[in-house]
């Protein structure tokens, strides 16, 4: 089993198998990082981001000097690319009105409670969208994917304590935002 540095060196010499192994090693982590920045409405766009990141990496492999870890490099490229794509995708976000909420909640007994719950989910998602990208990514990786703090720290290129502080601050901000909208957390 080769380590990343050996695979990178072989890929730099034109070994396509080494590059394929790097893709296999990092594809899921790169995709998840892209999803964690773009959010659940843009999963196809996240796959496009992952694809473009690998092609970008392949293109610039020759200039990679190995001063940083390959993983840190690819995560940084992914983060920046996903943030750029999100900026563009924001304008194409589908508009959801209350009819969609009714559909989501269904009908029958407990409709009011379901409506409230659906409303809170929608508000929660909207509030998450207003957080800084690093907080959004940490939050989605932790609560949605169930990733460990160490994994999140590696993907964002920050120490574990910083991730913990991102999560804490994000929860505090979300609590305040939901309260402002008159929604409870329980």
């Amino acid at each position: 089993m080769h380590d990343d540095a050996q695979l990178v060196a072989s890929a730099q010499d034109g070994d396509q198998k080494a590059f394929a192994e790097l893709v296999r090693r990092y594809r899921d982590r790169v995709f998840r990082l892209a999803v964690s920045i773009l959010g659940r409405e843009f999963i196809p766009e996240a796959e496009d981001v992952a694809q473009e990141v690998f092609l970008k990496i392949h293109h610039s492999l020759k200039t990679f000097r190995g001063e940083a870890q390959f993983g840190s490099w690819i995560y940084r490229v992914t983060f920046n690319h996903a943030v750029n794509v999100k900026e563009r995708a924001r304008f194409r976000r589908p508009h959801e009105d209350d009819t969609a909420l009714h559909r989501l909640a269904g009908s029958g007994p407990g409709l009011e409670k379901q409506m409230e719950s659906a409303q809170r989910d929608k508000a929660l998602e909207e509030c998450i969208e207003t957080l800084p990208e690093l907080y959004q990514s940490a939050l989605r990786q932790y609560y949605w994917f169930g990733s460990a703090v160490g994994e999140i720290a590696e993907s964002l290129g920050v120490p574990e304590n910083t991730v913990k502080s991102y999560l804490h601050r994000a929860r505090k901000m979300l609590h305040g935002m939901l309260k402002e909208r008159g929604l409870s957390c329980d």
């Binding site: 995709f31 659940r40 999963i43 989910d121 939050l139 989605r140 609560y143 949605w144 169930g146």
Partner: peptide, 10 residues
């Protein structure tokens, strides 16, 4: 509220 299936690549 956030826990959901993790999306996968094609």
């Amino acid at each position: 509220r956030m826990r959901a299936p993790v999306p996968a690549l094609s």
